[in-house]
């Protein structure tokens, strides 16, 4: 038997929050990137769940776009990570504090 939609929605809310937690607390830019991917995946799950329960394929198509965006963000994000790494051999956000106040 199919689980009701609220199960999926709550699961994706929890997953989203786990992603948020990862972004805020981890001190490694790459892990932060991965946590952002988690957040986007949680959103995808929401879309697909709604799509299934409303019987409209629209939500699934949107997920397709979200994946595109996620890929683009990952590519650019990693390029930025590399360019920062060139100056300081670090991935810790705390070491990126040239700009403050």
């Amino acid at each position: 038997m199919q689980a009701p939609i609220e199960y999926y929605l709550v699961l994706s809310a929890v997953l989203f929050a786990i992603g948020v937690a990862g972004v805020v607390i981890r001190r490694d830019v790459i892990v932060i990137l991965m946590s952002i991917e988690l957040m986007l995946n949680a959103v995808n799950l929401t879309f697909i769940a709604f799509s299934r329960f409303m019987g409209s394929v629209e939500g699934q198509v949107i997920v397709f776009f979200v994946m595109t965006v996620a890929a683009a963000e990952a590519v650019v994000g990693l390029a930025i990570v590399i360019s920062v790494f060139r100056f300081r051999q670090t991935l810790d956000p705390r070491d990126m504090q040239l700009l403050k106040w």
């Binding site: 989203f16 992603g19 948020v20 972004v23 830019v29 932060i32 990137l33 952002i36 957040m39 986007l40 959103v43 965006v69 963000e73 650019v76 994000g77 930025i80 990570v81 360019s83 920062v84 060139r86 100056f87 956000p93 990126m96 040239l98 700009l99």
Partner: peptide
């Protein structure tokens, strides 16, 4: 500073995208 700026902008921007 330029790289750092891009990094910060990107991280928060992607976060907000979520």
């Amino acid at each position: 500073e330029s790289a750092e700026s891009a990094m910060k902008y990107f991280l928060i921007g992607a976060f907000a995208t979520g």
